[in-house]
Amino acid sequence: MREKGLSVRVYIIVFAVLIGVTAGELELINLPNLARDFVVTTLIGLAVAKAALVVLFFQELKDEPRPLSIVLVVAVVIVTALLSVSFLQLHPFHT
């Protein structure tokens, strides 16, 4: 068999990290005295990090040709633009 893809070890490590981060998320919301904005931002940041791990290692995007990432990044950029501007229309200056 030709050697291709990542080793099972890597998959398991990534999985362990995903579980760990999720546990961290559950811990985070129980911490006292954290500003809500901070919690929200952190949780979304952690979700992005988890998603990145899945994309790069489970979907093996890191081994695909670079232009493929562009296809996906464009999609992410487009939605982000849509959402940010939609909110901007309502809240021109952050309150």
Binding site: L46, A47, V54
Partner: peptide
Amino acid sequence: VDIVWIFLFPLFYLI
């Protein structure tokens, strides 16, 4: 589909 849930979970349950 898993990734979608990774976002759904905090957005609906933790925030």
